[in-house]
Design a protein around this nucleic acid. Structure first.
Lengths: 132, 132, 132, 132
DNA sequence: GTGGTCTAGACCACT
DNA sequence: GTGGTCTAGACCACG
């Protein structure tokens, strides 16, 4: 699941994974998340690493701990929506500056992204008459 | 210039910077690059850090060293072109998977990117007849 | 252990040493190697120097790092076998060209090598019936 | 002619080259060697580099300078013969220790060398009846 | 002047 | 404890 070689720490990769599950709705607001042990065995990482990831998520306000009960996703759906937008914006800005550094114009970047999207997600609903 | 707090090491940021200069043409093929000491003072980092970055770029084939003379950009323009495409593709794919994880559809992603591009690079009054 | 005067850098000598240990089987595939600090004290060199050597071996694919755990010999025994052959071939070719440059014929070279081998590794009384 | 990338300095490579010419008889005892400038252009290296090489060879006693006349190979043929043996011995010992480090037995080493010799210098005088 | 190596020592992130 | 990074500074070899 995770890249154990990369310079980016595992706990951080795990944070991204969980954030993704929350903002995409796979983990709904208020839901209880699996225990540290369960997550550790599921992702095949050290429990300490899971602990660290959850701790940071808690600090960010995405999770909260209920003593002896478990950890729960925040019920603040607004926060989740905002996070989703913020993360998307961050990713996109990162790409844009990278493409700029590589010497691609805005137009080229737009086309390359559109092309990549077309390839990765073919127009499954190819109804007759189609997109028009 | 560099983010000294980030988890991503300075030497790696410097590699990206130089790669960008090469693939974007600001550093042309075959050109001599500034000396380690010059780069070190320019970027305000330790010469050893610059050395490390250049060493890695050299092992990637982008640079070569001429004893007691300096370091030079590869003359293989083909390699440079390919690198540019590869880097762009990598960045874009990274974005796409990230957006997918966040639960954005291909169409939403396309629009968000287009929107961000429009903002960062305003369409500078694309009147008919244009810049002239 | 190392020649600190030679033009050949210490980290490179250390790489050869470790490569030898791996291809000769003294360090088996998949084994964890001593920590950088241990090696540094053992060989009486700076930890940074050890780090450099291991880094290069890692980029050659012979080692891999597991975060906060240690470094491990590759489990690809095939790669190790091939490396052993390659290194032997290289060494032998180096000798052959050197001897040629010195004006020795193939036959002379063969004999000198045989002679040197006989001296360095005495024929330990190869009586009929042998070691038993 | 020379490896400008290698860690081994060019002047040293040049020294080996000239030593080889002397001990192999291509440069006879007492002969005048080409001028620094000639050698520099011939080998396409910096005159300083040639200077350095010749200086070291002079220090080793293999060359001697005659003011305003040039540099000459030593007339001490004994020294040359001894040098030839010494160099050969050095090379062979280097190989032997390398092979030992790689885990090859004396017998294996002998065979590998013989094999390599057979390949590089095919038995040109393959008269009928041959070696027997 | 150039790059390369090495040391000493500090600090950090990860598990 | 592990490895990774960075700095500061020294010394060297090369051209």
């Amino acid at each position: 699941m995770f890249n154990f070689q990369a310079t980016i720490p595992i706990y951080s990769q795990l944070m991204d994974e969980i954030k993704g599950q929350i903002v995409s709705g796979r983990l709904v607001a208020g839901a209880r998340i699996d225990s540290i042990r369960e997550l550790a065995t599921f992702y095949a990482v050290n429990p300490n690493t899971v602990q660290r990831a959850l701790l940071e998520l808690e600090r960010e306000g995405l999770l909260s701990t209920q003593r002896a009960t478990g950890k729960f996703v925040t019920e603040d759906e607004n926060m989740i929506r905002e996070l989703r937008s913020k993360l998307a914006e961050e990713q996109i800005n990162k790409l844009l500056t990278a493409m700029k550094t590589l010497g691609f114009s805005a137009e080229e970047t737009r086309e390359l992204v559109a092309h990549a999207l077309a390839q990765s997600a073919p127009p499954e609903a190819s109804v007759k008459g189609g997109d028009l």
